[in-house]
C-alpha cells in the first residue's frame, strides 16, 4: 500500500476503493446494543408526549405561589387574575395575551428550552441514535440510504446552539425568580414542598446550562493561549468539569422539569395538598 504514490485508478480520489469483506449481517454485536437507544427513545417520547399534553392543557399551571416552568414567564392575563387576590405582584407576568387568545401560551414559551435541548450536543447524540437510528448503536448499520449529517439545511442550524444557550440563561434567570417567588406566600415568606421543587428545578437547569458545550467554548475554549487568560482558564476548567457530566444533567433536569410541572398541576387542580413547612 502506498501512502503517497498513487496508481492511475486511485489518483482521482487518492485512495483505493474496492469490495469490503463480504459480511451480510447488519451487525455482529452480541451484546444488548439495542437496550440503550430503546430506553432513551422511550424516555424522550414520554417526555414529549407529556409536555405536549401539558402545554396544550392551558390550565392548572399556576397554584399560588407556584408557577409551572412550562408556562414561565407567564404570558397570559390568567396569571394576573390568579394573583389578583393576593397583594403580591409578580414581576414576570406579562399581560400580552388576553382572553381572546385561545392557544396555550406554553406553546410560545417552550420554544426556547425546546430549541436549547434540540440543538444540545448531548441530545443530538441521544435522538440521532434513539429516534433517527443514525446510527442506533456503534457498529450497527443505520437504515438510511443517504446521509449528509449536519452539513446541510436544516441540521446545519444546530450551529446556532449558542444563541439558544444565551436565551436559555435568560430563562434560567426567570425560573430562578419563580423559585424565589415560590417562597412568597400571600401571608408572607414561607416554604412549601412546591418551593423546594421549584428551587431544585432551577438549580438543575443551571447545571445543565453551565455544563453546555457552547458555554465551555464561550467561557474559555475558544482561546488559543490559556496562559494569557488565567481567570478564563480557571472558568474553563470549572465548566469542563461540569461538562463531563452534561449527559447526566441533561436527563436529570429534563425529568425534573416535567415532575415540577406535574406537581404544580396536581396542586392547582386540587389533587394534592401542598405541604407547608413554615
Amino acid at each position: 500500500m502506498t501512502a503517497t504514490t498513487a496508481s492511475p485508478e486511485q489518483q482521482e480520489q487518492g485512495w483505493r476503493s474496492g469490495p469490503r469483506a463480504a459480511i451480510q449481517a447488519r451487525t455482529l454485536r452480541k451484546d444488548r446494543w439495542w437496550a440503550e437507544p430503546t430506553i432513551t427513545g422511550v424516555v424522550l417520547v414520554s417526555f414529549i408526549a407529556y409536555s405536549t399534553w401539558a402545554a396544550f392543557k392551558n390550565a392548572d399551571y399556576y397554584a399560588h405561589p407556584y408557577l409551572s416552568p412550562f408556562y414561565s414567564p407567564c404570558l397570559a392575563t390568567i396569571c394576573e387574575s390568579a394573583r389578583a387576590g393576593s397583594q403580591v405582584v409578580h414581576a414576570p407576568t406579562v399581560g400580552l395575551f388576553g382572553p381572546w387568545w385561545v392557544i396555550s401560551p406554553a406553546i410560545i414559551v417552550l420554544i426556547v428550552p425546546l430549541g436549547f435541548r434540540m440543538s444540545c450536543y448531548y441530545y443530538r447524540k441521544a435522538y440521532y441514535r434513539a429516534l433517527w437510528q443514525s446510527p442506533p448503536a456503534c457498529a450497527v448499520a443505520e437504515p438510511h440510504k443517504r446521509y449528509r449529517g449536519e452539513s446541510r439545511f436544516p441540521l446545519i442550524l444546530h450551529n446556532a446552539h449558542r444563541y439558544f444557550f444565551y436565551l436559555g440563561l435568560l430563562f434560567n434567570g426567570i425560573l430562578t425568580w419563580d423559585a424565589i417567588e415560590g417562597f412568597h406566600f400571600s401571608n408572607g415568606w414561607g416554604m412549601g414542598f412546591g418551593s423546594l421543587m421549584l428551587t431544585v428545578n432551577a438549580i438543575l437547569l443551571w447545571t445543565y446550562s453551565l455544563s453546555c458545550h457552547s458555554c465551555r467554548h464561550i467561557v474559555g475554549g475558544r482561546l488559543k493561549h490559556f496562559s494569557r487568560h488565567p481567570l478564563r482558564f480557571k472558568a474553563w476548567g470549572f465548566v469542563s468539569k461540569l461538562n463531563a457530566h452534561h449527559m447526566r444533567f441533561a436527563w436529570v433536569s429534563l425529568i425534573f422539569v416535567a415532575l415540577t410541572d406535574l406537581y404544580v398541576r396536581l396542586v392547582a387542580s386540587g389533587w394534592v395538598h401542598d405541604p407547608r413547612f413554615f
Binding site: Y128, S134, C138, Y147, G149, E150, R162, G221, R222, N243
Partner: peptide, 30 residues
C-alpha cells in the same frame, strides 16, 4: 459538518481520547 456527534469514535478509542467532547465539538464551535 457531516459529523452528528453520536460519539462512537470516542467509545472505541483505545487511547481514551475524548474525541467528541474535546476535539470535534470544540472544532464545531470554533
Amino acid at each position: 459538518g457531516y459529523c452528528n456527534i453520536t460519539k462512537c469514535c470516542t467509545e472505541v478509542c483505545p487511547e481514551h481520547i475524548k474525541i467528541t467532547d474535546n476535539a470535534i465539538i470544540p472544532m464545531k464551535e470554533r
